[in-house]
């Protein structure tokens, strides 16, 4: 199949970018979207043009490295699918395909379609962890976790941190990402000791990175390749209010729990 690509080209973080038209000839319908880009890049390289730079790693839908806003939708038109798992059979012969990077102030473009998602790392570092003592590992079942909690925590833990929620959000808000991390850890007993500190710090960091605010339009949920529910955002809202209220009236005897 032949396609016409409209691709965002930008030399580096400082330069001005623009949309460029690149033709894709003889593309296999069975190739993945990234393989299509590989094919196009080979042709570009042969004709002495700089290939299109894009993020990718595992190419099996679990690493969270691939991105791309394809015809206005993060990870393309297929529901619950990463770009690497998207196939060219989802497109028509002769179709015009727009490929753009994640667009957010907090995700600066490094080159072409590659953005710096370091903001997510800093949000995670602000509180998205559990503190444990080093030493010999504990027995796997010595902390009982109710099945329902484990299931809910796992629903949140499938987040691969790709940033599609930010790209899809009309306000470039990462609420679904932050909520998935807060929700996952606050549901599990291992996350309880830092429960209040975590949600306050992560929400603060989200703001400090220059992301937008949630307006409950659920574009994130629709775009998420891991189908994470906005239920987690509601849980984070509850967690935030609880933590803010507890912060106001600290318990007697710090660290007594």
């Amino acid at each position: 199949m032949d396609i016409t690509l409209h691709v965002w080209r930008q030399k580096n973080a400082k330069s001005q970018g623009k949309m460029e038209v690149i033709e894709g000839k003889n593309i296999s319908e069975d190739s993945s979207f990234l393989e299509m880009l590989d094919t196009v890049n080979e042709t570009l390289q042969e004709s002495g043009v700089e290939p299109i730079a894009f993020d990718h790693d595992c190419r099996e839908g679990i690493c969270g490295m691939c991105s791309l806003v394809i015809n206005g939708e993060p990870h393309g038109p297929e529901y619950g699918t990463t770009t690497c798992q998207l196939h060219m059979r989802s497109f028509k012969n002769g179709q015009h395909i727009f490929i753009e990077p994640w667009r957010a102030k907090a995700f600066p473009i490094l080159r072409d379609l590659i953005v710096d998602r370091g903001a997510f790392d800093r949000i995670q570092q602000a509180g998205g962890f559990v503190s444990v003592n080093v030493g010999s590992p504990q027995d796997a079942n010595c902390i009982p976790v109710p099945k329902q909690d484990a299931d809910k925590a796992f629903d949140a833990a499938v987040c691969i941190g790709c940033g599609a929620c930010v790209a899809a959000c009309k306000n470039a808000s990462p609420m679904l990402f932050v909520a998935a991390k807060v929700s996952q850890l606050s549901l599990l007993p291992q996350g309880k000791p830092e429960r209040e500190k975590r949600v306050l710090a992560m929400v603060d960091q989200m703001k400090a990175e220059g992301f937008g605010n949630c307006t409950n339009q659920y574009e994130c949920e629709a775009a998420c390749p891991k189908e994470i529910s906005v239920e987690h955002i509601a849980r984070m809202n509850r967690e935030y209010f609880r933590a803010a209220a507890l912060e106001e009236s600290p318990k007697e005897g710090h660290g007594g729990e």
Partner: peptide, 9 residues
């Protein structure tokens, strides 16, 4: 975005 799309909002 050059290609503005809304999924479900």
């Amino acid at each position: 975005y050059a290609y503005e799309a809304t999924i479900q909002a």
